[in-house]
């Protein structure tokens, strides 16, 4: 990486971040399954859907592994709906309508909920920009200093001088 490329790297990093968020939003859409066969859906098919859901009774435990009776019933409901030929997205929509937004593992990227996907990448990009600006400024200052003298005082000296300065300042303040 050359010196000039570094800002570019930052930019790419920022884009990657934004990109990764775009992915999150599309998570529900990408798993659209073809219409299932008439046979009873297997446990694995049910779990694949349940994995992205949470029931309000046992907070923070994903539906596919939650051991409570309520969650068992929910899984059976998913099985019923899948057997009726519903798509995965249909099931999510039905559950949201019945039990509210919080059944989904991540808020659907619509309306106010877009905020959750937009805010972090924007803020992170802003943070990168700010730091990049800061570094550029510091570097400009640094070049100005080092242009004259190649040698900077060695570290122990630095510390020594800092201490000395400190002591002097203290003396000036009179404590």
């Amino acid at each position: 990486m050359t010196v000039k490329q570094t800002p570019l790297f930052l930019l790419v990093a920022a884009l990657a971040i934004v990109g990764s968020f775009a992915q999150v939003g599309s998570v529900q859409a990408q798993d659209a399954t073809p219409p299932p066969p008439a046979a009873t859906p297997s446990d694995d098919e049910v779990n694949a859907v349940a994995k992205n859901m949470y029931c309000p009774v046992c907070e923070n435990v994903p539906l596919d592994v939650c051991p409570t009776l309520a969650c068992q019933q929910w899984r059976e409901l998913i099985r019923e709906k899948l057997a009726a030929g519903w798509s995965e997205q249909d099931v999510y929509d039905y559950f949201v309508l019945q039990y509210g937004d919080r059944v989904l593992a991540a808020p659907p990227p619509t309306g106010l909920n877009l905020l959750i996907y937009i805010a972090p990448p924007v803020l992170i990009a802003a943070a990168f920009y700010v730091v990049w600006q800061m570094m550029r400024r510091m570097r400009a200052a640094g070049n100005a200093v080092t242009a004259g003298s190649e040698m900077q005082p060695a570290k122990p000296k630095d510390e020594y001088q800092a201490r000395l300065e400190d002591e002097l300042k203290r003396l000036d303040r009179g404590d």
Binding site: C55, P56, V57, A70, Q73, W74, E76, L77, E80, V96, L97, Q98, Y99, G100, D101, R102
Partner: peptide, 28 residues
């Protein structure tokens, strides 16, 4: 509250409940 319609109907039948019952849509 947070129930499936199938199971709910079974429950209502089992206890012969006749007063109005309905799901708590969106848990509102």
């Amino acid at each position: 509250y947070v129930d499936t319609e199938t199971e709910a109907r079974v429950y209502l039948d089992r206890f012969g409940i006749t007063y109005p019952n309905g799901p708590d849509l969106r848990t509102s």
